[in-house]
Amino acid sequence: MEGLTTTTKLNNGVEMPRLGMGVWKSDNTTAKHSVIEALKHGYRMIDVAKQYGNEAGTGEGIKEGLAALKMNRKDLFVTTKVFNGDQGYDTTLHAFEGQLKRLQLTYVDLLLIHWPVDGKYIDTWKAMEKLYHDGKVRAIGVSNFNNERMDDLLAHATVTPAVNQMEFNPICQDQDIVEHDNHLGIQVEAWSPLGGGESLSDPEINKLAEKYGKSAAQVILRWDWQRGIVTIPKSSHEKRIVENSDIFDFELSDEDVETINKLDKDKRSLTYDMFQWHNPKGAPDDVDKWDDSPADYKA
């Protein structure tokens, strides 16, 4: 039976839940409570990143949520990411120890390169391979890698990425990347799966929502599910956290899946050129600093 405990087997044999919760754009306090609520309502995968500035709050939420439910660490799948400013071999290894400390964990289930920083992502990957072989991560992967960078990474890698987390939603589908990763046995995972207001207000999606008696968000998340995309919708509200997981009592027809497929506009919310590491005129890529962040966050 489909549900929040349904998993997909990654290319190294690790079982990864197909639907989880992300904590992007949440301060530490909000992240903590969101994680606790998510675990209470059956979620078994949490996605965080150093760049979000809330690993500490997420770690507190994991600790308290597992204790409240009398669950073991092995019952939860935790993903974090190598911050762009930490990329490189030695810096990745050093920074990861700080990430484990903030998360209050001895290992993570999946570690991703957050963005492919040019000139550094190969060395970063070598460090991640060491962490993988040392047992500090159960799987390693990438995020925001196009086909060119993926092929470059594979030419230098001894471990094939298990996951490529990318922006994927009705208006940003990047079918060429999905097909390439599928061919390589790399699981595609969606960030920003709901595509913001433009997708949620799309007339076609809202017609389908009315047809199936579901919300626009639920229709989109069900579409992701039927496309075989691992999905991590973000919410800080208990009602929405529950709603996002209520997608297992209906199924979109093949025709309706294709209707959403045709909404693709190749419209991204973030691109390489927006960051200074790729474009000197781009925006700074600093770790978000929230008012409730630990003073020693960057340690």
Rank of each mutant, 00 (worst) to 15 (best):
Q173V: 04
V35R: 01
S26M: 14
L76F: 02
L184M: 14
T6V: 10
E15Y: 07
V142N: 02
N28A: 04
K239P: 05
L111Y: 03
W290T: 03
K265W: 08
N28T: 04
N54M: 01
Q87K: 09
D249P: 06
E55Y: 02
Q187W: 05
N84E: 14
I220C: 05
D47N: 07
Y52F: 10
D134R: 11
W277P: 03
I36E: 00
Q51A: 11
H156G: 03
G213S: 07
T8N: 11
K234W: 00
E148G: 00
N182S: 14
T91V: 08
D266H: 12
P17Q: 09
K265R: 15
A127I: 02
L112C: 03
D152C: 10
A299G: 13
K281E: 15
T158A: 12
D291K: 15
T160K: 15
A68N: 11
R18M: 15
L4V: 07
Y297W: 11
N144T: 09
D256N: 06
D86V: 06
E167Q: 12
C172K: 05
G53Y: 01
E258C: 10
K70A: 13
G3S: 08
R102K: 14
H237K: 15
V117A: 04
E179T: 14
V35K: 00
S253D: 13
I241A: 05
K207S: 09
A139R: 00
E243V: 05
F248L: 07
G185Y: 05
F248V: 06
I229D: 00
D256M: 03
E179M: 13
N206E: 07
G53H: 04
G65Q: 00
F168Y: 14
E255R: 11
Y89N: 08
L110K: 03
E179I: 12
V219N: 04
D123V: 07
V163D: 01
A127N: 04
N146Y: 11
L184N: 07
I260A: 06
T30V: 14
S215N: 07
L4G: 05
L93I: 13
D47R: 00
Y132G: 08
D152L: 15
N182D: 12
K265Q: 15
W125K: 01
V108M: 03
E243Y: 03
Y297A: 02
E64K: 02
H114L: 04
T92F: 02
Q173P: 01
K130Q: 15
A295E: 15
D246S: 11
L110T: 02
D134W: 13
Y132I: 10
A139D: 00
F83I: 05
S199K: 06
E97C: 06
P116N: 06
D90K: 14
T106Q: 14
Q218R: 08
L10I: 06
L110E: 03
L131N: 04
I177R: 09
K267Y: 14
K81W: 02
T5F: 10
I205R: 01
S215H: 05
D181A: 14
Q104P: 02
G135D: 07
N72M: 12
N72C: 10
T79G: 03
L153N: 00
D264R: 07
V14W: 01
D151T: 11
Q104H: 13
T259G: 07
L4D: 04
G85M: 10
Y43Q: 00
H180E: 09
G119N: 10
I36K: 01
W223E: 02
I177V: 15
L110C: 10
A190Y: 00
